[in-house]
């Protein structure tokens, strides 16, 4: 088999995942796109392992490790997303702008109603971090 087939497919899948990470708004959809990117890397690892006929099969071993790490990542990521959803009532990553620099003096404050929920969520988080 020509090596370009799996390599090009991996590239296209990776760029699809890249688009999803940049363009999606829901945090869980972003996690799905991250899974697509990880799978593109796995396909590359397997293809190059089979091509090089590695005696240690480092590519396949690394693929198994990547799959396990992706499973751990999705578990932790979903736990974090659920915690954010319980605290803020949204999983919209565009609204989680607590650490963003304000573009203007009064531009960020007052216009959004989300600022109010952020402020009410703030003391809870501080108490939680202190506890």
């Amino acid at each position: 088999m020509h090596l370009a087939y799996p390599a090009v497919l991996a590239v296209l899948l990776f760029c699809t995942g890249l688009y999803g990470v940049l363009a999606r708004r829901n945090a869980i959809l972003v996690l799905m796109s991250v899974e697509l990117m990880l799978n593109a890397v796995n396909l590359n690892l397997v293809a190059f392992d089979v091509w090089l006929r590695d005696t240690l099969h480092a590519g396949q071993a690394l693929t198994l490790f990547t799959i396990a790490i992706a499973a751990a990542e999705i578990g932790i990521g979903l736990a974090i997303v659920l915690m954010v959803y319980r605290n803020r009532g949204t999983s919209d990553i565009d609204k989680l702008r607590d650490n963003a620099e304000a573009p203007g003096a009064d531009g960020a404050r007052g216009t959004d109603e989300t600022a109010g929920t952020d402020e009410t969520a703030g003391p809870d988080e501080k108490a939680e971090a202190a506890a």
Partner: peptide
């Protein structure tokens, strides 16, 4: 995001095809 993804795909496909043009996997 679309611009970044298309640019990355074009660059990577070009590089990959150019690099592995004469490479075959022996299955």
């Amino acid at each position: 995001a679309l611009a970044v993804a298309v640019a990355a795909a074009a660059a990577l496909v070009w590089v990959v095809v150019d690099a592995f043009r004469a490479t075959w996997i022996d299955l």
